[in-house]
Design a protein around this nucleic acid. Structure first.
Lengths: 180, 180
DNA sequence: TTGTTTACGTCAGCCATGTTGACATTTATG
DNA sequence: CATAAATGTCAACATGGCTGACGTAAACAA
Protein backbone atom coordinates (compact mmCIF):
# COMPACT_ATOMS: atom_id res chain seq x y z
CA UNK A 1 0.00 0.00 0.00
CA UNK A 2 0.91 3.59 0.28
CA UNK A 3 3.16 3.01 3.27
CA UNK A 4 5.44 0.82 1.27
CA UNK A 5 6.04 3.62 -1.14
CA UNK A 6 6.69 6.11 1.57
CA UNK A 7 10.22 5.75 2.87
CA UNK A 8 9.68 8.40 5.54
CA UNK A 9 7.18 6.29 7.39
CA UNK A 10 9.36 3.23 7.40
CA UNK A 11 12.00 5.02 9.35
CA UNK A 12 9.60 5.21 12.21
CA UNK A 13 8.94 1.48 12.13
CA UNK A 14 5.24 2.10 12.10
CA UNK A 15 4.54 -0.89 10.04
CA UNK A 16 1.13 -1.79 8.90
CA UNK A 17 1.09 -4.83 11.15
CA UNK A 18 1.86 -2.77 14.20
CA UNK A 19 -0.80 -0.21 13.43
CA UNK A 20 -3.41 -2.85 12.77
CA UNK A 21 -2.62 -4.48 16.05
CA UNK A 22 -3.28 -1.12 17.63
CA UNK A 23 -6.65 -0.94 15.95
CA UNK A 24 -7.50 -4.41 17.17
CA UNK A 25 -6.31 -3.80 20.70
CA UNK A 26 -8.81 -0.99 20.91
CA UNK A 27 -11.58 -3.12 19.49
CA UNK A 28 -11.04 -6.12 21.76
CA UNK A 29 -10.31 -4.12 24.88
CA UNK A 30 -13.40 -2.00 24.47
CA UNK A 31 -15.53 -5.00 23.68
CA UNK A 32 -14.48 -6.77 26.85
CA UNK A 33 -14.44 -3.61 28.90
CA UNK A 34 -18.15 -3.06 28.34
CA UNK A 35 -19.32 -6.65 28.62
CA UNK A 36 -19.54 -7.01 32.40
CA UNK A 37 -21.42 -3.79 33.17
CA UNK A 38 -23.86 -4.65 30.41
CA UNK A 39 -24.82 -7.79 32.28
CA UNK A 40 -25.53 -5.87 35.50
CA UNK A 41 -27.45 -3.20 33.66
CA UNK A 42 -29.73 -5.75 32.09
CA UNK A 43 -31.11 -6.59 35.54
CA UNK A 44 -32.35 -3.01 35.85
CA UNK A 45 -33.60 -2.92 32.26
CA UNK A 46 -30.91 -0.40 31.53
CA UNK A 47 -28.39 -0.27 28.75
CA UNK A 48 -24.98 1.12 28.03
CA UNK A 49 -26.40 4.57 27.53
CA UNK A 50 -27.70 4.61 31.09
CA UNK A 51 -24.32 3.53 32.31
CA UNK A 52 -22.58 6.42 30.65
CA UNK A 53 -24.97 8.95 32.13
CA UNK A 54 -24.62 7.44 35.58
CA UNK A 55 -20.88 7.23 35.31
CA UNK A 56 -20.23 10.79 34.25
CA UNK A 57 -22.79 12.20 36.63
CA UNK A 58 -21.04 10.42 39.46
CA UNK A 59 -17.72 11.61 38.21
CA UNK A 60 -18.69 15.27 38.01
CA UNK A 61 -21.60 15.98 40.32
CA UNK A 62 -23.36 19.22 39.49
CA UNK A 63 -22.60 18.93 35.81
CA UNK A 64 -25.08 20.60 33.48
CA UNK A 65 -27.07 18.77 30.85
CA UNK A 66 -25.16 20.62 28.17
CA UNK A 67 -21.82 19.56 29.54
CA UNK A 68 -22.93 15.96 29.61
CA UNK A 69 -24.07 16.22 26.01
CA UNK A 70 -20.65 17.55 25.13
CA UNK A 71 -18.97 14.54 26.67
CA UNK A 72 -21.23 11.92 25.22
CA UNK A 73 -21.52 13.59 21.84
CA UNK A 74 -25.08 12.55 21.29
CA UNK A 75 -28.19 14.65 20.72
CA UNK A 76 -30.33 15.97 23.53
CA UNK A 77 -33.19 13.83 22.25
CA UNK A 78 -31.12 10.70 22.65
CA UNK A 79 -29.97 11.74 26.09
CA UNK A 80 -33.47 12.73 27.09
CA UNK A 81 -34.72 9.20 26.72
CA UNK A 82 -32.29 7.61 29.14
CA UNK A 83 -31.98 10.60 31.43
CA UNK A 84 -35.75 10.74 31.77
CA UNK A 85 -35.85 7.14 32.89
CA UNK A 86 -33.06 7.65 35.38
CA UNK A 87 -34.80 10.69 36.84
CA UNK A 88 -38.19 9.04 37.06
CA UNK A 89 -36.75 5.97 38.72
CA UNK A 90 -34.77 8.00 41.18
CA UNK A 91 -31.20 7.24 40.17
CA UNK A 92 -30.44 10.83 39.29
CA UNK A 93 -31.81 14.12 40.49
CA UNK A 94 -31.67 17.57 39.00
CA UNK A 95 -31.23 20.90 40.76
CA UNK A 96 -31.81 24.26 39.18
CA UNK A 97 -28.54 26.10 38.75
CA UNK A 98 -28.14 29.02 41.14
CA UNK A 99 -25.82 31.03 38.94
CA UNK A 100 -27.91 30.35 35.83
CA UNK A 101 -31.39 29.20 36.59
CA UNK A 102 -31.87 27.76 33.10
CA UNK A 103 -29.40 25.06 33.87
CA UNK A 104 -30.31 21.70 35.36
CA UNK A 105 -27.46 20.39 37.44
CA UNK A 106 -27.16 16.63 37.63
CA UNK A 107 -26.50 14.59 40.75
CA UNK A 108 -26.67 10.94 41.62
CA UNK A 109 -29.13 10.02 44.33
CA UNK A 110 -27.94 7.55 46.95
CA UNK A 111 -29.63 4.84 44.92
CA UNK A 112 -27.83 6.06 41.82
CA UNK A 113 -24.52 6.23 43.60
CA UNK A 114 -24.87 2.65 44.67
CA UNK A 115 -25.53 1.46 41.15
CA UNK A 116 -22.62 3.55 39.95
CA UNK A 117 -20.30 1.88 42.44
CA UNK A 118 -21.51 -1.52 41.43
CA UNK A 119 -20.98 -0.84 37.75
CA UNK A 120 -17.67 0.90 37.91
CA UNK A 121 -16.34 -1.61 40.41
CA UNK A 122 -16.20 -4.17 37.64
CA UNK A 123 -14.41 -1.82 35.32
CA UNK A 124 -12.04 -0.50 37.95
CA UNK A 125 -11.15 -4.04 38.87
CA UNK A 126 -10.40 -4.85 35.26
CA UNK A 127 -8.23 -1.77 34.85
CA UNK A 128 -6.52 -2.44 38.17
CA UNK A 129 -5.64 -5.97 37.13
CA UNK A 130 -4.24 -4.75 33.84
CA UNK A 131 -2.26 -1.94 35.48
CA UNK A 132 -0.88 -4.24 38.14
CA UNK A 133 0.18 -6.84 35.63
CA UNK A 134 1.75 -4.31 33.31
CA UNK A 135 3.61 -2.17 35.82
CA UNK A 136 3.81 1.55 36.48
CA UNK A 137 5.97 2.37 33.52
CA UNK A 138 3.65 0.58 31.13
CA UNK A 139 0.74 2.49 32.61
CA UNK A 140 2.50 5.73 31.82
CA UNK A 141 2.95 4.59 28.24
CA UNK A 142 -0.65 3.53 28.03
CA UNK A 143 -1.77 6.97 29.14
CA UNK A 144 0.47 8.69 26.61
CA UNK A 145 -0.77 6.65 23.69
CA UNK A 146 -4.42 6.91 24.67
CA UNK A 147 -4.12 10.66 25.03
CA UNK A 148 -2.66 10.75 21.55
CA UNK A 149 -5.66 8.91 20.21
CA UNK A 150 -8.13 11.30 21.77
CA UNK A 151 -8.87 13.98 19.25
CA UNK A 152 -9.66 17.13 21.16
CA UNK A 153 -7.42 19.03 23.49
CA UNK A 154 -10.59 19.93 25.37
CA UNK A 155 -11.08 16.27 26.20
CA UNK A 156 -7.44 15.61 26.95
CA UNK A 157 -7.41 18.34 29.58
CA UNK A 158 -9.49 16.14 31.82
CA UNK A 159 -6.45 13.91 32.20
CA UNK A 160 -4.02 16.61 33.17
CA UNK A 161 -1.72 15.09 35.74
CA UNK A 162 -3.60 15.33 38.97
CA UNK A 163 -1.04 12.69 39.60
CA UNK A 164 1.63 15.31 39.41
CA UNK A 165 3.62 13.30 41.91
CA UNK A 166 1.86 10.26 40.70
CA UNK A 167 4.76 7.85 40.56
CA UNK A 168 3.98 6.17 43.83
CA UNK A 169 1.44 3.98 42.23
CA UNK A 170 0.62 0.36 42.12
CA UNK A 171 3.59 -1.78 41.44
CA UNK A 172 3.29 -5.22 40.07
CA UNK A 173 2.80 -7.76 42.75
CA UNK A 174 1.37 -5.81 45.63
CA UNK A 175 -1.13 -3.13 44.73
CA UNK A 176 -3.33 -1.63 47.39
CA UNK A 177 -5.80 -4.37 46.92
CA UNK A 178 -8.43 -2.69 49.01
CA UNK A 179 -10.10 -0.89 46.20
CA UNK A 180 -13.12 -2.73 44.91
CA UNK B 1 -17.27 13.86 49.37
CA UNK B 2 -16.60 11.25 51.94
CA UNK B 3 -12.98 10.84 50.83
CA UNK B 4 -12.06 14.27 52.01
CA UNK B 5 -13.18 13.51 55.54
CA UNK B 6 -11.40 10.26 55.70
CA UNK B 7 -7.75 10.65 56.53
CA UNK B 8 -5.54 7.82 55.49
CA UNK B 9 -7.45 7.30 52.30
CA UNK B 10 -5.04 9.39 50.28
CA UNK B 11 -3.37 6.48 48.63
CA UNK B 12 -6.70 4.98 47.80
CA UNK B 13 -7.98 8.24 46.45
CA UNK B 14 -5.08 8.50 44.08
CA UNK B 15 -5.61 4.98 43.01
CA UNK B 16 -9.32 5.41 42.43
CA UNK B 17 -8.63 8.56 40.46
CA UNK B 18 -6.12 6.69 38.38
CA UNK B 19 -8.47 3.83 37.66
CA UNK B 20 -11.27 6.15 36.70
CA UNK B 21 -8.96 7.96 34.36
CA UNK B 22 -8.26 4.60 32.80
CA UNK B 23 -11.97 4.01 32.31
CA UNK B 24 -12.35 7.40 30.72
CA UNK B 25 -9.33 7.04 28.48
CA UNK B 26 -10.97 3.98 27.01
CA UNK B 27 -14.27 5.76 26.55
CA UNK B 28 -12.87 8.86 24.88
CA UNK B 29 -10.31 7.05 22.79
CA UNK B 30 -12.85 4.62 21.46
CA UNK B 31 -15.38 7.35 20.82
CA UNK B 32 -12.91 9.33 18.73
CA UNK B 33 -11.41 6.26 17.16
CA UNK B 34 -14.72 5.31 15.57
CA UNK B 35 -15.90 8.77 14.58
CA UNK B 36 -14.00 9.23 11.32
CA UNK B 37 -14.78 5.87 9.73
CA UNK B 38 -18.43 6.36 10.64
CA UNK B 39 -18.51 9.44 8.46
CA UNK B 40 -17.10 7.60 5.46
CA UNK B 41 -19.41 4.66 5.98
CA UNK B 42 -22.44 6.92 5.94
CA UNK B 43 -21.74 7.73 2.29
CA UNK B 44 -22.19 4.06 1.45
CA UNK B 45 -25.22 3.71 3.70
CA UNK B 46 -23.15 1.45 5.89
CA UNK B 47 -22.60 1.49 9.62
CA UNK B 48 -20.05 0.41 12.15
CA UNK B 49 -21.14 -3.19 11.86
CA UNK B 50 -20.23 -3.23 8.19
CA UNK B 51 -16.89 -1.74 9.03
CA UNK B 52 -16.08 -4.50 11.47
CA UNK B 53 -16.93 -7.20 8.97
CA UNK B 54 -14.88 -5.54 6.28
CA UNK B 55 -11.97 -4.95 8.59
CA UNK B 56 -11.66 -8.46 9.93
CA UNK B 57 -12.26 -10.05 6.56
CA UNK B 58 -9.45 -7.97 5.16
CA UNK B 59 -7.27 -8.86 8.08
CA UNK B 60 -7.78 -12.60 7.80
CA UNK B 61 -8.82 -13.53 4.30
CA UNK B 62 -10.38 -16.96 4.10
CA UNK B 63 -11.84 -16.73 7.55
CA UNK B 64 -15.01 -18.73 8.13
CA UNK B 65 -18.32 -17.23 9.15
CA UNK B 66 -18.06 -18.97 12.49
CA UNK B 67 -14.65 -17.50 13.21
CA UNK B 68 -15.91 -14.05 12.42
CA UNK B 69 -18.84 -14.56 14.77
CA UNK B 70 -16.38 -15.55 17.47
CA UNK B 71 -14.46 -12.33 17.05
CA UNK B 72 -17.42 -10.01 16.89
CA UNK B 73 -19.37 -11.82 19.58
CA UNK B 74 -22.71 -11.16 18.01
CA UNK B 75 -25.35 -13.60 16.81
CA UNK B 76 -25.37 -15.06 13.35
CA UNK B 77 -28.66 -13.29 12.72
CA UNK B 78 -27.10 -9.92 13.41
CA UNK B 79 -24.13 -10.72 11.26
CA UNK B 80 -26.33 -12.05 8.51
CA UNK B 81 -27.95 -8.71 7.96
CA UNK B 82 -24.79 -6.76 7.31
CA UNK B 83 -22.91 -9.60 5.67
CA UNK B 84 -25.80 -10.12 3.28
CA UNK B 85 -25.65 -6.50 2.21
CA UNK B 86 -21.91 -6.62 1.72
CA UNK B 87 -22.20 -9.76 -0.39
CA UNK B 88 -25.04 -8.47 -2.51
CA UNK B 89 -23.26 -5.21 -3.15
CA UNK B 90 -20.03 -6.93 -4.04
CA UNK B 91 -17.74 -5.84 -1.22
CA UNK B 92 -17.22 -9.37 0.03
CA UNK B 93 -17.30 -12.73 -1.64
CA UNK B 94 -17.63 -16.19 -0.24
CA UNK B 95 -15.92 -19.36 -1.35
CA UNK B 96 -16.89 -22.82 -0.30
CA UNK B 97 -14.27 -24.33 1.93
CA UNK B 98 -12.25 -27.07 0.27
CA UNK B 99 -11.43 -28.94 3.45
CA UNK B 100 -14.96 -28.58 4.81
CA UNK B 101 -17.51 -27.74 2.20
CA UNK B 102 -20.02 -26.55 4.77
CA UNK B 103 -17.86 -23.55 5.47
CA UNK B 104 -18.15 -20.27 3.63
CA UNK B 105 -14.78 -18.60 3.52
CA UNK B 106 -14.83 -14.84 3.42
CA UNK B 107 -12.77 -12.64 1.14
CA UNK B 108 -12.81 -8.99 0.22
CA UNK B 109 -13.41 -8.24 -3.43
CA UNK B 110 -11.25 -5.56 -5.00
CA UNK B 111 -14.06 -3.12 -4.34
CA UNK B 112 -14.18 -4.27 -0.73
CA UNK B 113 -10.44 -4.03 -0.35
CA UNK B 114 -10.53 -0.47 -1.54
CA UNK B 115 -13.15 0.51 0.98
CA UNK B 116 -11.20 -1.30 3.66
CA UNK B 117 -8.10 0.68 2.84
CA UNK B 118 -10.01 3.90 2.90
CA UNK B 119 -11.56 3.14 6.27
CA UNK B 120 -8.54 1.77 8.04
CA UNK B 121 -6.33 4.49 6.62
CA UNK B 122 -8.02 6.94 8.95
CA UNK B 123 -7.59 4.72 11.92
CA UNK B 124 -4.04 3.73 11.09
CA UNK B 125 -3.15 7.38 10.73
CA UNK B 126 -4.64 8.13 14.12
CA UNK B 127 -2.75 5.29 15.75
CA UNK B 128 0.43 6.24 13.94
CA UNK B 129 0.21 9.80 15.20
CA UNK B 130 -0.35 8.64 18.74
CA UNK B 131 2.47 6.09 18.60
CA UNK B 132 4.87 8.58 17.10
CA UNK B 133 4.06 11.22 19.67
CA UNK B 134 4.32 8.79 22.57
CA UNK B 135 7.47 6.95 21.60
CA UNK B 136 8.39 3.31 21.29
CA UNK B 137 8.58 2.61 24.98
CA UNK B 138 5.15 4.07 25.59
CA UNK B 139 3.78 1.92 22.80
CA UNK B 140 5.14 -1.14 24.53
CA UNK B 141 3.37 -0.08 27.72
CA UNK B 142 0.19 0.59 25.83
CA UNK B 143 0.26 -2.91 24.40
CA UNK B 144 0.86 -4.47 27.79
CA UNK B 145 -2.02 -2.68 29.45
CA UNK B 146 -4.43 -3.28 26.60
CA UNK B 147 -3.59 -6.97 26.59
CA UNK B 148 -4.33 -7.02 30.30
CA UNK B 149 -7.74 -5.54 29.66
CA UNK B 150 -8.63 -8.14 27.07
CA UNK B 151 -10.37 -10.97 28.83
CA UNK B 152 -9.61 -14.11 26.91
CA UNK B 153 -6.28 -15.70 26.27
CA UNK B 154 -7.74 -16.86 22.98
CA UNK B 155 -8.06 -13.24 21.89
CA UNK B 156 -4.71 -12.19 23.30
CA UNK B 157 -2.93 -14.81 21.21
CA UNK B 158 -3.62 -12.76 18.13
CA UNK B 159 -1.13 -10.21 19.46
CA UNK B 160 1.70 -12.61 20.09
CA UNK B 161 4.91 -10.72 19.49
CA UNK B 162 5.49 -10.43 15.83
CA UNK B 163 7.86 -7.75 16.99
CA UNK B 164 10.70 -8.54 14.66
CA UNK B 165 8.62 -10.07 11.95
CA UNK B 166 8.72 -9.02 8.37
CA UNK B 167 5.94 -6.90 7.00
CA UNK B 168 3.09 -8.30 5.02
CA UNK B 169 2.06 -11.11 7.28
CA UNK B 170 -1.31 -12.56 6.54
CA UNK B 171 -2.81 -15.06 8.87
CA UNK B 172 -5.20 -17.18 6.92
CA UNK B 173 -7.36 -18.87 9.47
CA UNK B 174 -6.79 -22.34 8.12
CA UNK B 175 -8.49 -23.46 4.96
CA UNK B 176 -6.76 -22.59 1.79
CA UNK B 177 -10.10 -22.12 0.19
CA UNK B 178 -9.09 -22.64 -3.35
CA UNK B 179 -12.59 -23.61 -4.22
CA UNK B 180 -14.69 -21.38 -6.45
C1' DT C 1 -38.28 47.33 28.12
C1' DT C 2 -38.21 44.50 24.41
C1' DG C 3 -36.37 41.30 21.39
C1' DT C 4 -33.07 37.58 20.77
C1' DT C 5 -30.45 33.88 22.26
C1' DT C 6 -29.49 30.11 25.29
C1' DA C 7 -30.52 25.88 28.05
C1' DC C 8 -33.47 22.53 28.33
C1' DG C 9 -37.58 19.64 27.43
C1' DT C 10 -40.69 16.97 24.44
C1' DC C 11 -43.33 14.76 20.65
C1' DA C 12 -42.99 12.01 16.60
C1' DG C 13 -40.88 9.16 13.44
C1' DC C 14 -36.91 6.81 11.20
C1' DC C 15 -32.81 3.78 11.07
C1' DA C 16 -29.00 0.63 12.53
C1' DT C 17 -27.92 -3.10 14.99
C1' DG C 18 -28.31 -5.92 18.75
C1' DT C 19 -31.45 -9.89 20.75
C1' DT C 20 -34.40 -14.66 20.88
C1' DG C 21 -36.72 -18.45 18.78
C1' DA C 22 -37.85 -21.55 15.16
C1' DC C 23 -36.75 -24.00 11.18
C1' DA C 24 -34.20 -25.51 6.54
C1' DT C 25 -30.15 -27.10 3.92
C1' DT C 26 -25.89 -29.07 3.10
C1' DT C 27 -22.09 -31.62 4.56
C1' DA C 28 -19.20 -34.11 7.87
C1' DT C 29 -18.69 -37.82 10.94
C1' DG C 30 -19.30 -41.78 14.15
C1' DC D 1 -27.57 -44.36 8.42
C1' DA D 2 -28.28 -41.17 12.17
C1' DT D 3 -26.72 -37.24 14.16
C1' DA D 4 -24.19 -33.12 14.64
C1' DA D 5 -22.15 -29.03 12.71
C1' DA D 6 -21.89 -24.77 9.67
C1' DT D 7 -24.62 -21.77 7.67
C1' DG D 8 -28.77 -19.34 6.14
C1' DT D 9 -33.31 -17.31 6.84
C1' DC D 10 -37.84 -15.58 8.65
C1' DA D 11 -40.10 -13.01 12.18
C1' DA D 12 -40.55 -10.18 16.10
C1' DC D 13 -38.70 -7.18 19.39
C1' DA D 14 -35.51 -3.68 22.12
C1' DT D 15 -32.03 -0.18 22.41
C1' DG D 16 -30.23 3.87 21.29
C1' DG D 17 -28.60 6.65 17.77
C1' DC D 18 -30.69 10.36 14.37
C1' DT D 19 -33.64 14.56 12.30
C1' DG D 20 -37.25 17.95 12.55
C1' DA D 21 -40.45 20.77 14.85
C1' DC D 22 -42.02 23.20 18.58
C1' DG D 23 -42.38 25.10 23.58
C1' DT D 24 -40.83 27.47 27.90
C1' DA D 25 -38.07 29.91 31.02
C1' DA D 26 -34.21 32.59 31.87
C1' DA D 27 -30.33 35.38 30.45
C1' DC D 28 -28.65 39.04 27.80
C1' DA D 29 -28.14 42.79 24.57
C1' DA D 30 -29.91 46.80 22.18
Amino acid sequence: MADVNNPGLNLLFLRDEELRQGIELLFFAYRDFTAEPDAILAKYDFGRAHHRVIYFTGRSPGMTVGELLGILRITKQSLSRVLGQLLKQGFIQQKTGSRDRRQRLLYLTEKGAELERQLSAEQRARIARAYRAAGAQAVEGFRKVMLGIIGREEDRRRFASKAGAAPGIAKPGQGTGTQG
